[in-house]
Design a protein around this nucleic acid. Structure first.
Length: 776
DNA sequence: CCATCATAGATTCATGAGGC
DNA sequence: GCCTCATGAATCTATGATGG
């Protein structure tokens, strides 16, 4: 074995390692990755693609297998690889001697799916492995063929069992047609498909082993086994045979994707010009076996090409299906990759318009869901799609889609995709060939590009510098900062043009457009923060802002041009405190409303975080009092912590529950109320976690709270000032100057904080006023 | 209806380079 | 030294086709 491995072709070794990996087999050092970690200290499992490893490593890994069945599998794969090589070699050396039958065998066993589908665990005892016969050249030339097909039922243990076997020889003579008695209880006969009933099986006496025996005499001397999807049949019959022709491997429809294996029925229609069975009719294994034999004979005897044109009928059917899909798709939009934690109600907010929403839950827990939106007319669907914020991209098949990032009422940010179900009107003609389709795509992407090219640069080129003077550039904005909140960063009348992050979870940028250079300048000066130069020498300020969600964020505000006269507007001017932010026009009603709704929802929630993984979510119910539902989030990392939301029916209940939590109240970084809770698990061990409110109290009484907050700060400032004075007074030694400086610094920081708070309060007041005037 | 399979698309993760 | 970005590999998911 060692010798065989050492001299094997790289491809064989690579396939072997991949197969071993796929089957989850482990050698003495464990699986492939574990082996790498032990064997290769330098790269370890980071370079785990077998095809990028040397033969030596591959062989060393394969030699760690010592179990008998593993060794047998390895030997078999080696044999398989050797066979393939031999056949290729045979073909190259004597191309004229290859019989048509042998050519089909070669096509089958060199098919890329052959190794995964036709390597059976035939070392097991109840398997029947056929013998080819001694003389290779004779075997290669044998043209005897036998087509088989089976009908299977599902058993109560979920496995499949063969219940009927049909076999047909080269002359289409039926040599076997028997029912098989399964050795397990049948769960589902699937009679409409198999055509087999419980009654049929009452008379059956044969077992799989009996069938193996009956087939044995046909399968010597290099007889070729023929079938459609033959590996399925061989698997249930537990027969391992080396010379096979699988018609689903051999034939392919022109222009069909690689993965689309042809169905037996379609092949019959296209190659033989006759229908195998009426639609919805049950299968008959004798007919199916005969059909695959006829297909092979068509190639062998009539020289039919194995790459076949789709029949007129197929094309028509395809076209019809596509048209139907198009028609239905015109009034629909498709949402996909929706994270599991997005409640379906919140999806309504993603799009505007009148539609019905059908959500398909994720297949696995914690997976993604999809949803279909049905509109009343194609126009409405189109309009709703146009209104979605985001860049249009094409999915794989050329359908337009946009990535949407939405903020949930829970404070989480989720991203999902909105996809149209049809191509854009202008290119909606249905293409029938692949080439036409790709051409169409090229045209459309080109068209998009030229549009983009012609619009943006033209505008920008008119007078770049003049235009830039009226702009400020916000950059390094964390992705979780909603663009609406950026309005609070600057005062003045401006428009905001948001550039989405280049990568998910990355930072995004925004261009702020003012009416005049002066306004832009003024707004920049009013930003709280120190001016620094960026790399290119443009003035910029770092801004720390507090989001309505309570968390903090920082970003940069940069001028787009050099300062012409830096002293023109002084930074020490006092007008910044009282200036009120004007509401920009592009802040739509919907977003405002959505924000309000989110806040309302947030009020009813508490956020538990840093919950150790060993705390069962059930036990969390003991930490919080009251009636609530618990939404547990999955941990982001193994061995880390997890978080959870506690949702109450009303904000009051949430507040009450928070107050009742035992623990010292503190403020987290973003200023939200938070308590650390230590408690005992039922297992006896202790645990601790944090309970946090989701919102900072706002408007009405909340504003008062904010005001109090400010008063607190003022007090603190007074105190600091007094301290400063006292220090000054007590000793003016130089040794204390450092301390004084520090205190001064603190003072300044506090002032900044107050300014920021002021701004937020102003902001909120504005919003409140606006809302009240609206509701009147 | 179900299971299987391969694939494409998307995200996550790890890593190195480079800015601040 | 921390942070981001770019890159590529690994991993996950939905999909669509097959078979019964």
């Amino acid at each position: 074995m060692e010798h065989k491995l050492a001299t094997a072709e790289k491809k064989v070794l690579v396939d072997l390692v991949k197969l071993v990996q796929k089957r989850g087999l482990e050698g003495e050092n464990g699986g492939w990755k574990e082996f790498l970690n032990v064997y290769d200290k330098k790269f370890g499992s980071s370079l785990s693609d077998p095809s990028r490893r040397s033969n030596d490593v591959l062989v060393a890994f394969l030699l760690t297998f010592k179990k008998k069945e593993d060794l047998q599998l390895i030997a078999r794969v080696m044999q398989c690889g050797a066979n393939r090589e031999l056949i290729e070699k045979f073909k190259q050396e004597t191309p004229d001697k290859e019989t048509p039958e042998q050519r089909l065998v070669r096509l089958t066993i060199t098919h890329f799916q052959y190794p995964t589908n036709y390597l059976f665990p035939s070392y097991a005892e109840d398997w029947f492995v056929t013998e080819l016969g001694k003389k290779k050249s004779k075997v290669m030339k044998s043209t005897r063929m036998l087509a088989i097909d089976c009908e299977m039922v599902t058993c109560d243990d979920g496995t499949e069992a063969v219940v009927r076997v049909g076999a047909v020889d080269r002359d289409l003579k039926v040599v076997l047609d028997k029912f098989v008695k399964p050795d397990k209880t049948v769960f589902n006969y699937k009679t409409d498909i198999t055509g087999v009933t419980a009654e049929d099986l009452e008379r059956a006496t044969l077992s799989v082993t009996d069938i193996q025996k009956k087939l044995r005499r046909f399968l010597s001397q290099g007889t070729i086994l023929v079938g459609h999807g033959l590996h399925n049949d061989l698997k249930v019959l537990r027969i391992d045979h080396a010379r096979v022709i699988d018609t689903s491997f051999v034939f392919e429809f022109e222009n069909a994707p690689k993965t689309h294996r042809p169905s037996l029925n379609n092949l019959c229609k296209a190659v033989l010009g006759q229908e195998l069975r009426m639609p919805d009719a049950a299968h008959n294994c004798v007919h199916d076996a005969a059909a695959s034999m006829k297909l092979v004979l068509a190639v062998v005897e009539k020289g039919v090409d194995t790459t076949i044109q789709k029949s007129e009928e197929m094309l028509v059917a395809e076209k019809k299906r596509q048209e139907e899909r198009q028609e239905a798709g015109k009034t629909q939009l498709f949402l996909h990759k929706i994270p599991h934690y997005v409640p379906s109600e919140e999806l309504q907010g993603v799009l505007n318009g009148d539609f019905t929403l059908v959500v398909k839950p994720p297949q696995k827990e914690g997976g993604y869901s999809t949803a279909v939106l049905d509109f009343n007319s194609p126009e409405e669907a189109n309009e709703a799609f146009e209104n979605v914020e985001g860049d249009v991209a094409k999915d794989k098949s050329g359908l337009p889609q946009k990535m949407v990032t939405l903020k949930l009422s829970s404070g989480l940010v989720a991203s999902l995709y909105v996809r149209k179900m049809v191509k854009d009107e202008s290119l909606s003609e249905i293409s029938t060939t692949k080439r036409a389709r790709t051409e169409e795509n090229n045209v459309s992407s080109k068209r998009q590009k030229t549009e983009d090219d012609s619009e943006e640069p033209k505008e920008a080129n008119v007078n770049q510098k003049e235009a830039d003077k009226t702009k400020l550039f916000l950059h390094k904005i964390p992705h979780d900062v909603p663009s609406q909140e950026l309005h609070g960063v600057l005062n003045g009348d401006f428009t905001l043009e948001v550039k989405p992050p280049k990568r998910k979870g990355g930072y995004y940028n925004a261009v702020v457009g003012f009416n005049s250079p002066e306004e832009a300048n003024k707004a920049f000066e009013n930003v709280v923060g120190d001016v620094v130069k960026d790399k290119a020498g443009l003035p910029q300020k770092m801004v720390a802002l507090k989001l309505s969600s309570g968390s903090g964020a920082s970003l940069y505000v940069r001028k787009m041009v050099q300062d012409e006269s830096p002293g023109e507007i002084s930074t020490t001017e006092e007008n910044n405190v009282s200036s009120k932010r004007q509401k920009t026009e592009d802040e739509s009603e919907e977003t405002k409303e959505a924000n309000v709704n989110q806040r309302e929802a947030d009020k009813r929630k508490l956020f538990l975080h840093k919950i150790p993984l060993n705390v069962p979510s059930q036990e969390l119910k003991g930490v919080i009092t009251g009636k609530f539902t618990l939404e547990v989030m999955r941990p982001k990392r193994k061995g880390g912590y997890y978080n959870a939301f506690v949702v109450f029916n009303s904000p009051e209940e949430a507040n009450k529950a928070f107050d009742k939590v035992k623990g010292e109240a503190a403020k987290e970084k973003g200023g939200l109320a938070q308590k650390m809770v230590a408690f005992k698990l039922s297992s006896g061990s202790g645990a601790s976690l944090y309970v946090r409110k989701m919102v900072q109290d706002e408007s009405e009484e909340a504003e008062e709270a904010n005001a109090n907050h400010c008063e607190d700060h003022l007090k603190e400032i007074e105190e600091l000032k007094e301290k400063l004075k006292a220090k000054d007074f007590a000793n003016s030694c130089e040794g204390h100057s450092k301390e004084i400086e520090e205190l001064n610094h603190k003072l300044k920081a506090k002032e900044h904080q107050i300014q920021a708070q002021d701004k937020i309060i102003d902001n909120l007041k504005m919003k409140l006023e606006k809302k009240q005037s609206k509701s009147r």
